[in-house]
């Protein structure tokens, strides 16, 4: 269609929607919106905690119970689970994250179904996901909840997290070069 050819060559489309934004722009927007999120939801921005709640709700859906689980033992956690996903700000934040990322990729015409190259990739992704999920839960936060929101809340734990994140990244890159290159 003609209109798409016109949009494609438009310089504003290129700068705003097509090309990646500079890191500084991203940093400023993330900071502003985490403040908005904290003010509106009352809790600091986190991602992986909600994934654990989703897991609990799914488990309850098939008849399971997490009442006795240490992780969900607090009154606050029980109240949150009882209220359900529709009353959970984190659920909407995560859904918004997925929808926003999809929208950004689509509007930049950068969406693609990628082929799985090797089964080693699949194994690494599953193993990495499990380790990240487990690590994030015993650390009470991922790089968003514990690092980003932690540092933004003037918490020392955020900085401790940063140091060990860096050390972990060094070990991770060594393993990556060894097994994937």
């Amino acid at each position: 269609m003609k209109i798409f050819d016109k949009i494609k060559t438009d310089p504003y489309y290129k700068v705003w929607l097509k090309d990646a934004w500079p890191y500084v722009t991203g940093a400023i927007l993330l900071s502003v919106f985490q403040i908005v999120s904290l003010a509106s939801a009352g809790t600091p921005w986190g991602v992986s905690g909600t994934l654990a709640d989703w897991g609990a709700w799914l488990y309850q859906l098939v008849g399971g119970s997490v009442d006795k689980w240490y992780y969900f033992a607090s009154d606050a956690a029980q109240a949150k689970l009882a209220a359900g996903p529709l009353k959970d700000p984190g659920t909407f934040r995560n859904l918004g994250l997925i929808a926003g990322a999809l929208f950004a990729a689509l509007i930049a015409s950068g969406f693609k179904f990628k082929k799985i190259k090797t089964w080693r990739q699949v194994a690494a992704a599953v193993l990495g996901g499990l380790l990240m999920g487990y690590g994030a839960r015993i650390a009470f936060g991922c790089n968003i909840g514990a690092l980003f929101s932690g540092i933004a809340s003037m918490s020392l734990s955020g900085w401790v997290y940063a140091v060990f994140l860096f050390l972990g990244a060094i070990v991770g890159s060594k393993l990556l070069v060894k097994y994937f290159m």
């Binding site: 990628k114 082929k115 799985i116 190259k117 990556l176 994937f180 290159m181």
Partner: peptide, 15 residues
């Protein structure tokens, strides 16, 4: 480097 995620393409290109 199709189907490869960061930082694999960069390291491959360097090599």
């Amino acid at each position: 480097c199709l189907g490869e995620a960061c930082p694999v393409p960069l390291i491959k290109a360097e090599k």
